[in-house]
């Protein structure tokens, strides 16, 4: 039998002389050990696949794919509507789409973010990661990137469906391309911001049920409060304050950036009149949310022990 000759294994030889079928013995490994980079990428891919329930039993796939299905349904409907009614533009713009389905997107983040981080924390798996050739922050980055990429993937896919639908409905190609690219840009921002918020909350509440409830509550309630408050303020003439308050809602924040940098219409149907300062402020806010979220995560994981 093929034994790795690097290991002198006396026992099998002695046993074989008695006519016993003996096992090979522990095989040692002299092959390559891939470094941190590969490990991080591997964990990232693992996280990404886990978000969609890939590589897990069927039951785990239901929740994410149901939500994804709901997210993908409207673009097809919109294309149909555009064709049937002979519209010259989509009923819902590329940049407004994620906000219109904010509930679904929020639910997706709320249910998948805990899957990404709460399990390892709750079951004490972290010591096993820490004792491996990776750093604590590698784990944080891999998880963050995995979830953010997954979010981006579904938003981008939805945007692509919109785009394809629009083309099939024979809408003006130039406008569609611009809109599509803007939609992708907006998707990147949503992915980053929502991942940051979702993971921070999930890591703070490893009890699974609470994590989901907490994330969706924060996202939905804050969205609701910000929406109502900003409406009231604008209605009462306090436009500037109203617009800033509207950005307390992550969807409002990204939407604000789209309006101010890309000049598209606000998904909320309001007039965002903040100009250049507003654009800069909002962009800074996004950076703060994303970087701050990662920072908080790193701090949270620094507290995790090995023994």
């Amino acid at each position: 039998m093929a034994e790795n000759s690097a290991v002198p294994d006396a026992a099998p030889a002695a046993a074989q002389s008695h006519g016993v079928i003996h096992d090979i013995g522990f095989r040692h490994y002299d092959g390559e050990r891939l470094g941190r980079g590969w490990i991080v990428r591997s964990l990232l891919v693992e996280t990404f696949r886990g978000v969609f329930g890939l590589g897990r039993p069927a039951k785990a796939k239901i929740m994410p794919w149901v939500l994804v299905g709901i997210l993908f349904a409207p673009p097809l409907i919109f294309a149909l509507i555009a064709v049937l009614l002979g519209l010259d533009e989509l009923p819902l713009s590329y940049t407004a789409y994620p906000q219109a389905l904010s509930l679904i997107v929020s639910l997706f983040v709320a249910s998948r973010a805990p899957y990404c981080v709460s399990r390892d924390l709750r079951h004490g798996v972290m010591p096993l990661y820490l004792s491996r050739p990776m750093r604590r922050n590698d784990y944080v980055f891999a998880k963050f990137a995995g979830l953010a990429l997954a979010l981006f993937a579904i938003l981008a896919a939805a945007e692509t469906l919109l785009f394809v639908g629009a083309l099939l409905a024979k809408l003006a190609v130039g406008a569609q391309i611009t809109g599509y690219l803007q939609g992708l840009a907006v998707s990147v921002l949503y992915a980053l911001v929502l991942t940051s918020i979702g993971l921070v909350i999930a890591a703070a509440t490893p009890r699974r049920g609470l994590g989901v409830a907490a994330i969706i509550t924060v996202l939905a309630v804050v969205a609701g409060v910000a929406a109502v408050a900003s409406e009231l303020l604008i209605y009462n003439g306090n436009e500037t304050l109203g617009n800033y308050v509207g950005a307390l809602d992550p969807y409002g924040l990204v939407d604000g950036i789209a309006v101010l940098w890309f000049g598209v219409d606000s998904a909320f149907g309001r007039e965002v009149t903040l100009g250049f300062t507003g654009g800069v402020a909002f962009t800074a806010a996004v950076i703060v949310v994303v970087a701050g979220g990662i920072g908080l995560l790193m701090r949270r994981y620094r507290k995790v022990g090995v023994a």
Binding site: Y29, G31, R33, L34, G35, W38, I39, S42, L43, E46, R119, D120, H123, G124, V125, M126, P127, L128, Y129, S131, R132, P133, M134, V306, A307
Partner: peptide, 25 residues
């Protein structure tokens, strides 16, 4: 480790393969 450190919802094979990859294999 001495403490509980295993997730309950994956099989031993899946988990060990994952950990092996996390070690660079």
């Amino acid at each position: 480790p001495e403490s509980e450190c295993l997730p309950p919802d994956v099989s031993a094979t899946e988990f060990i393969v994952h950990m092996a990859r996390m070690s660079g294999l």
